[in-house]
Design a protein around this nucleic acid. Structure first.
Length: 478
RNA sequence: GCUUCUUUAGCUCAGCUGGUUAGAGCACCUGACUGUUAAUCAGGGGGUCCAAGGUUCAAGUCCUUGAAGAAGCGCCA
């Protein structure tokens, strides 16, 4: 008999014989097995008659074991569930020694997120991480769906890149030179000509420059792939390896870019609300329980579902960088000298300033645009005021910067000046400049940190808990 | 990279101004249990007190250095 997934079995009317396969989550009273197969957060209850089972089988029904069970789906006599399976046959596919299980996070009790991270290979078996990674999948699907519906093409930009011009951060060097005997030139520098690619190569920090090349022919493209930063960042919002979504649109300006980012975010969050109800309900309950332990001031004003619905149903606030500075300078914390970092035109906004604007002042997602050109990247389009560039950041409550984007500088002469100002050699970006030589046109795009989106949707507060195997400084286990 | 905090049983933690054999709850093991769902009841086992060095008659406890983890900051997505 072929296997029925538990998600499907739980939705069926009682009356027929089925086979389910999964892992034991609980075994109570020598009679009730809670079985989970990952198809849903919900377990199916299997009722057994211990007298009719062989001793060896009964002995091996323990938490963590994998079972195949055939039996009749019936209406449950107990309270917690609508249907249950009365087992006729039980096959133990894989045992799990309780003494060993006890040393792992499979033991049935509450575990700290830190311990779960140390056993990331097993944390999928928990309700929490099952929910998170089902939602992560749903969001991946929603993103491809959104762009496909809007006529974007998914573009696979290289992971190993010879481009070092983006300036988005420290990069991981890619080489197959012998590390114990690195060939040097006469000047004593690394002889990159002997390396695999004959030049210096790194893991990509962004697919944007390549995405622009695609957009300038295909019209609308997006990337969705792994991205690497060798920054020694020790925070709950940074990873050395993360996934980024980067749409790039020809014939679009900054306003179009902001509209795209808002429409996109609302679509994918609505998708989660519509398609991840069980998992979100679990995460909501978890957050509510956690909040009860906290002092009033640290509790969430809106609960998880309310926050998601709030984003979907309210427009994002849009202010210029200049307006943001003015608001901050008129604010109470500024006047009481509560800010650690200076607030004046020309300086980059610190986390404390962004949090004030998003969480205290506007209490909704905020898009800040038209930043001073000195604090932004070379490819961003100069505004006519001579001081700012057409850049925008989307800030989310509890997360901070979730999207960074801009209209790109499409004027060849201006771009060449900017490249010179940033001390980038033209020969390194000759291919990028070519798009400005042959049929240049206004275009814009943004980068979204996928894990930061998942943090917002799940309510998790550490980015290491929304990616299966986090890569961070001093940690590349699994 | 910086600041603060943490590291004691499988897990979460307690362990006072240094003092005899280091404790609790949960988990685990053994037994009981045919309507449980954080199952329950009785009994039992379980420790390199993160590492190295130091102070002291005596260190889980004090000092120094290091490692790992967390929160916050910087860099960003």
């Amino acid at each position: 008999m072929s296997r029925v997934k538990i998600k499907s079995a739980l939705g069926q009317e009682p009356g027929k014989e089925i086979t389910v396969k999964g892992w034991v989550r609980a075994f109570r009273s020598n009679r009730f097995i809670a079985l989970n197969d990952g198809s849903t957060i919900n377990n199916i209850q299997v009722v057994i008659n211990a007298d009719q089972l062989e001793e060896s089988v009964l002995k091996n029904i323990s938490i963590g074991a994998a079972l195949a069970i055939t039996g009749d789906l019936v209406a449950s006599q107990g309270k917690g569930q609508y249907v249950e399976v009365i087992a006729k046959s039980i096959i133990v596919l894989g045992t799990a020694d309780p003494e060993e299980v006890q040393k792992t996070i499979l033991q049935p009790k509450r575990h700290s997120l830190e311990l779960l991270r140390e056993q990331a290979h097993l944390r999928f078996r928990t309700n929490l991480f099952g929910a998170i990674f089902r939602i992560r999948h749903a969001m991946t699907y929603a993103i491809h769906n959104y762009f496909n519906e809007k006529g974007f093409y998914n573009l696979h930009t290289p992971i190993i890149t010879g481009s070092d011009a983006e300036g988005a951060g420290e990069m991981f060097r890619v080489t197959n030179l012998p590390l114990e005997n690195i060939p040097l030139t006469e000047e004593g520098k690394i002889d990159v000509e002997q390396d695999f690619f004959g030049k210096e190569t790194n893991l990509t920090v962004s697919g944007q420059l390549e995405a622009e090349l695609g957009a300038m022919a295909l019209g609308q493209v997006y990337t969705f792939g792994p991205t690497f930063r060798a920054e020694n960042s020790n925070t709950s919002r940074h990873l050395a390896e993360f996934w980024m979504i980067e749409p790039e649109v020809a014939f679009a300006d900054l306003k179009d870019d902001m509209e795209l980012s808002e429409d996109f975010m609302k679509y994918v969050i609505q998708y989660a609300l519509d398609n991840c109800k069980d998992d979100l309900a679990f995460l909501l309950q978890r957050e509510t329980n956690e909040d009860k332990q906290k002092p009033q001031a640290e509790r969430n004003e809106l609960n998880l579902i309310e926050r998601l619905e709030f984003v979907v149903s309210n427009s994002f606030e849009r202010i210029t960088y200049t307006e943001a500075i003015e608001i901050l300078q008129r604010s109470k914390p500024y006047k009481k000298k509560k800010f650690k970092f200076p607030v004046e035109w020309g300086v980059d906004l610190a986390s404390e300033h962004e949090r004030f604007l998003v969480e205290k002042h506007f209490k909704k997602p905020v898009i800040i645009f038209d930043y001073p050109k000195e604090i932004k990247a070379f490819y961003m389009r100069n505004n006519d005021d001579g001081k700012t560039v057409a850049a925008m950041d989307v800030l989310f409550p509890g997360i901070g910067e979730i999207i960074g984007g801009s209209q790109r500088e499409e004027r060849l002469n201006v771009l060449k000046e900017k490249i010179a100002d940033f001390n980038i050699e033209e020969e390194h970006v000759w291919w990028y400049l070519d798009t400005r030589k042959f049929g240049t046109a206004p275009h814009a795009g943004f980068g979204l940190g996928f894990e930061r989106l998942i943090m917002f949707v799940t309510g998790m507060s550490n980015i290491k808990d929304v990616i299966p195997f986090p890569r961070t400084p001093k940690n590349a286990e699994f």
